[in-house]
């Protein structure tokens, strides 16, 4: 029971980080970056390919790889699309995603690459007769620390202020001197770093990295940002958390019926969106539209 709750909280935390990465980029560019999945994947490959290095080095390299990839996406693909219609940008991000999957396939092969990363985290320990996995505790601690750090960055720093301003009105932010290229590049780099954290936790749990490794979590994190409210970072993170936690709990509750976990989760998602169409933290939910 306690382990089930810890698992739910840790999966929720991971999805919150993925959703936050997506939400940051969406905020400044109105771009749903589907290729966020490939940022998670590249960081995961990096962890697996460098598993013989000290863990810290391996983690740093994975953060660098994902941030660099995010920056390249921005420079080569998305920069030209600034201000285009969101549907166009979404389609292009699908394209980037598929393209990168093919590149990974060429470089690493279609079959999973695996290696045990951070073996120290795979065990369990016992507290008062209850067995608890180390991974779940470490994941929760990591997620909390990173969410707090992000909260500080966004609420207390100049960069965070500019990100918030740009998310609500980029043109006015530029009129005041906010450097658009630099700010958008920063958002991508941070989202890449967040993707690397997600990758780390995932690889520890399941070190079988294939070219589509980051896909599932990204799709669910996207559901999360819609549930939480796309226009607020808090909402994105909260929505990601809810989706992850609910999915984890459903897997336990449904027992043998766990093949239906996704279906039930989407039922819950639809109900939430019927009640609050703009997402849980949306200010506009109560406004009549028709």
């Amino acid at each position: 029971m306690i382990q089930a709750i810890l698992d739910a909280v840790s999966l929720g935390g991971v999805y919150a980080l993925a959703a936050l990465g997506l939400g940051l980029v969406f905020g400044v560019m109105r771009l749903v970056n589907f290729a966020h999945a490939e940022l998670i994947t590249v960081a995961s490959y990096t962890l697996v390919m460098t598993h013989q290095f000290p863990l810290v080095v391996s983690i740093v390299l994975s953060v660098v790889a994902a941030s660099l990839m995010a920056l390249l996406m921005e420079l080569l693909a998305y920069r030209r699309l600034r201000g285009s219609n969101p549907a166009t940008m979404l389609i292009v991000s699908f394209g980037v995603s598929v393209l990168l999957q093919k590149v990974y396939e060429l470089v690493f092969g279609a079959l999973p690459r695996s290696a045990s990363v951070a073996t120290g985290l795979t065990g369990a320990f016992t507290v008062g007769g209850v067995s608890i996995t180390i991974a779940s505790v470490v994941t929760i601690v990591l997620a909390v620390v990173i969410l707090l750090a992000m909260g500080y960055l966004i609420e207390r720093t100049k960069l965070g202020l500019q990100l918030r301003a740009a998310a609500s009105d980029f043109q006015t932010a530029r009129l005041l001197g906010v450097r658009s290229n630099r700010l958008i590049a920063s958002a991508f780099v941070i989202s890449g770093a967040l993707a690397a954290v997600v990758a780390f936790v995932n690889v520890v749990g399941n070190p079988q990295v294939d070219p589509r490794f980051g896909l599932d979590i990204t799709i669910l994190a996207l559901v999360g940002i819609v549930v939480g409210g796309m226009n607020s970072l808090r909402g994105s993170a909260l929505g990601g958390f809810i989706v992850g936690a609910v999915l984890s709990l459903l897997n336990v509750i449904l027992g043998n019926g766990r093949v239906y976990a996704y279906s039930w989760m989407f039922v819950i998602v639809i109900v939430i969106l019927l009640v609050r169409p703009g997402g849980i933290l949306s200010k506009f939910a109560t406004k009549e539209r028709v």
Partner: peptide, 18 residues
Amino acid sequence: QIFSGLSVIENLTLGLTG
């Protein structure tokens, strides 16, 4: 075009950017 969701001082701080 003030940032209505931000505080007064945050709006002014953004003005300092330029």
